[in-house]
Design a protein around this nucleic acid. Structure first.
Lengths: 213, 213
DNA sequence: GCTTATTGGTGACTTTTGTCACATCGTTAA
DNA sequence: TTAACGATGTGACAAAAGTCACCAATAAGC
């Protein structure tokens, strides 16, 4: 695949941006890529730029003091990292981990032009609001599932979200990985998956789970 | 107490706003009050204005399908509701409950002038960013405590936050109320509080808990 | 005063979740 | 081919949290 220019990416994944904004961004952004598994962001790190995802997939998760993980949500092409929008502007540090789960490409926007963008490009301003709102709501959903539901329901919620985001019924997840994302243990997840399989909502295979709904 | 004008409130609780912004707001906002216990916002409701809290205290919490509650955070004078900033702009509905826990006064800003504010008043723009960031971080802390900690630690975290926000060591909370906020049950909370008392971190009284740290 | 409602305490039990120990089955690399 | 490793299954047990039943102390109303 021939590599695309910033302008190509903007046209494809950010069509709602006004023309002048796309031109401005094309002039000032640089394209960065991350390999599968590469850490893009970690607690305590400062931002010097904000990032628009244009290829791949980024996993955002919280890290517990004991080293445990807790999955929050994915970012896909067309998304921006809400935290980098905030932190870049205010020069504060991040509180979450971001990891590329596929080879990922981002447009890197230097913080110097953020002020200009928000002030002079209406579609940028709406985009940032939209971004905040979407991430906020995803966090609220995560809170819901942890606060009000048992592990079995959380697991269903998790699998459903994976099927939607990965856009396939064959979820390439081991029980161990699922357990890590839900901050639980492998055995418990295995048992719950069995129960869900007996109910007919999934079929279990080696190295993947088939989602039937 | 003689009632204050919008301008008085702005000078007192939003001193960082530039002069022109304060004048603008004073012209266009109305003052609203809510009685203790009054519901200010509930899921499914549309916003026609955004609110700046200038007196009292507002409790934000999530409501589960089963009717359970789950405390998120308080808003105090000087705070704005992040959700109302977003929702008002986008004319979408709220996902959380907000309740006045004291007699509360807010400045109500009509959505019509929001665009103008963000575009023409730098201090407003920074204020909204700050608001988003703070609420986001509070949510992350809540997620941390639910995802990684047992109920005993969550209880400590909760009491600590109450002591800070209510600015007193005598926390006016019954065990039943605490249980509701943490979406647990009264007996469990009673037992954990006893344990914490034996450790010397609190003293239990009727209708209040004395925080010793 | 007396009655009643609210608040808090406690034991016994169940359910959910986590942990440990091991077994099994595929896959992969030497 | 065989040893090693990773993924999964499973039983036994422990710990955490929720539930039920009931009691005692305090406060509020009549």
């Amino acid at each position: 695949m021939a590599s695309l220019s910033a302008n190509d990416y903007l046209n494809k994944y950010f069509p709602q941006f006004e023309l002048a904004l796309k031109e401005k961004l094309a002039q000032h952004t640089s394209i960065k890529t991350f390999e599968t598994g590469e850490l893009m962001m970690q607690p305590g790190q400062y931002f010097r730029s904000t990032m628009l995802v244009v290829a791949g997939k980024v996993k955002l998760y919280r890290q517990g003091e004991d080293g445990g993980e807790f999955f929050m949500y994915y970012l896909e092409p067309g998304n921006a990292c809400a935290l980098s929008l905030i932190c870049a502007t205010k020069q504060e540090t991040s509180e979450v981990m971001a990891k590329a789960v596929e080879k990922t490409t981002v447009l890197s926007i230097p913080i110097e032009i953020m002020d200009d963008l928000v002030r002079n490009y209406k579609t940028w301003y709406y985009f940032t609001l939209e971004t905040y709102r979407n991430r906020f709501e995803e966090l609220l959903q995560v809170i819901d599932s942890v606060a009000f539901k048992g592990l079995d329901e959380r697991l269903m919620f998790y699998l459903k979200k994976q099927a939607e985001k990965l856009n396939t019924k064959q979820l390439p997840l081991t029980h161990q990985e699922i357990a890590a994302d839900l901050n639980s243990s492998r055995e418990v997840i295995s048992r719950l998956l069995k129960k869900i399989e007996q109910r007919g909502d999934v079929i279990l295979h080696r190295n993947y789970v088939e989602w039937l709904k």
